[in-house]
Design a protein around this nucleic acid. Sequence first.
DNA 1: CGACTGGTTGAGTGGTCTCAAGTCCTGTGG
DNA 2: CCACAGGACTTGAGACCACTCAACCAGTCG
Lengths: 269, 269
Amino acid sequence: MQTVPSTALEAPPRRCFFHSFVPVKGKVQPYTDCLECRSRCKSIFSDLTDEEMNVLCAHKGENIYRKGQTIFYEGTRPTGLYILRKGKVKVFKKGLWGREQIVRLAKEGDLLTYRALGSVSHYVVSAEAIEDSVVCFIDMEDYRKVLKGSHGLALRVIQILAQAFDRAENAIRDLSQKSVRQRLAETLLQLRRQYDVDEDGAIAVRMTREDLANVVGTAVETVVRFLSEFKGKKMIAVRGQKISILDEERLQRTAFPDGTRLPEGCSSE
Amino acid sequence: MQTVPSTALEAPPRRCFFHSFVPVKGKVQPYTDCLECRSRCKSIFSDLTDEEMNVLCAHKGENIYRKGQTIFYEGTRPTGLYILRKGKVKVFKKGLWGREQIVRLAKEGDLLTYRALGSVSHYVVSAEAIEDSVVCFIDMEDYRKVLKGSHGLALRVIQILAQAFDRAENAIRDLSQKSVRQRLAETLLQLRRQYDVDEDGAIAVRMTREDLANVVGTAVETVVRFLSEFKGKKMIAVRGQKISILDEERLQRTAFPDGTRLPEGCSSE
DNA sequence: CGACTGGTTGAGTGGTCTCAAGTCCTGTGG
DNA sequence: CCACAGGACTTGAGACCACTCAACCAGTCG
């Protein structure tokens, strides 16, 4: 259905942008040791044995995607799992007339392909780097092999999926019942929690107004108008794509007029 | 947070409404043999051994809920899994100002508590019978025990959750991008697929306009207006709460103006 | 009968979208 | 260095979709 432009896999970065990827004779040193990674990151695969990790990573890939590059396409055959190792990625679905709806924003350590944890005939979302990113790829066959053998992994996958499902259903409720003003306020709070702030106190992610609109589910102009409203009320400060939250309390009240709060992330197990 | 009215568990049906529940001296014969049920129904638990089924059903309950009765409440401690054995149930979340958003409609054999398949501190949805229903209850401890021991079950749960997650993300996209007219048309098609038609050719479920509004995510009056529009265009026929689809083709085009189709149910594994 | 629930219709409002014009920013090439 | 092109952003005007409020109807139950 969709064609996969060759750009996705070329990715010969003009220069290396992560210190851990030292160019060796013009080639980037691509593979991090998975075992080492496992112990560092708290990921789905943290609990696996060395043996299982070796199977899982037998055909592991690790690719660099520059800002704007697509990592995989909705509708194509799922060849494996993608995990974001470094950078920021938007995960979206194409809707009416090709308009995109961003269903989640991934941060380091996040899985990009939840649906593919169960068997599925095609990717149900697309993923694109919104910053230069490093993405690990785990072959589907390897995953299945390990999953089949590891009860611990299966239990872990259940937790991950149940949480993701919960977040999705909360989004359904919010999209259905909240105004754009409320949803934008909530999105800003979420973004700050997810990506934290940089040295200037601004939310540490650069998104276009269009991406923001595609998260909130509205038009670009409407996002601009409400951002400008928030700015006027001194709730936020805006400098280009950098947004700082000045009056969290007020933003909170805008997003949750009934006094509820931003739901927990993954800690609510 | 929420209190549980005593109505939920009383449920002394004035008379027995399923032939399989023969009243014995004023008491309903409550328990169906789970082993027998397993072989008949294609449920999550189809593949378990007899032994595992016995553990799972050690504290099984089977309750009758009359139309309008609540089965469990969002925000309360999860004591187990609920499976709809007979009847129809709406599963919803309370949103702003207590307005309810129906996140799914369950039919016979459906699990009501997806999130509780992973560990969780409280039910994240409520469930209420929209028809007289029989609901099986599986104790959480028993489920955990069996899940811990059965890799096959874990794999099955992963499939179930991944599918549920997929449906939820599709709903996000639709809520965000489609108009109420489109969503209502799509809902009607879904309802017919899910519940089939009765002898008159009408969708075999009776829902109030309010419930319909809470599925679509709109106001009651808006549902009424669009139903009346569809009726005027001879796309549907309406007799009280019974709705028949007359012109599926046209309804299809209303729901999916871009030529996409209603996504598969569970068959798309 | 009155009370109540569910449904329907109308009028008015307002939130959000679309279209159009124009500005700001950034990278590129001369 | 500047000019320029293109993309991102902003603002305004107008239209329209959907919501709210209010009135009213039909059926049911006590």
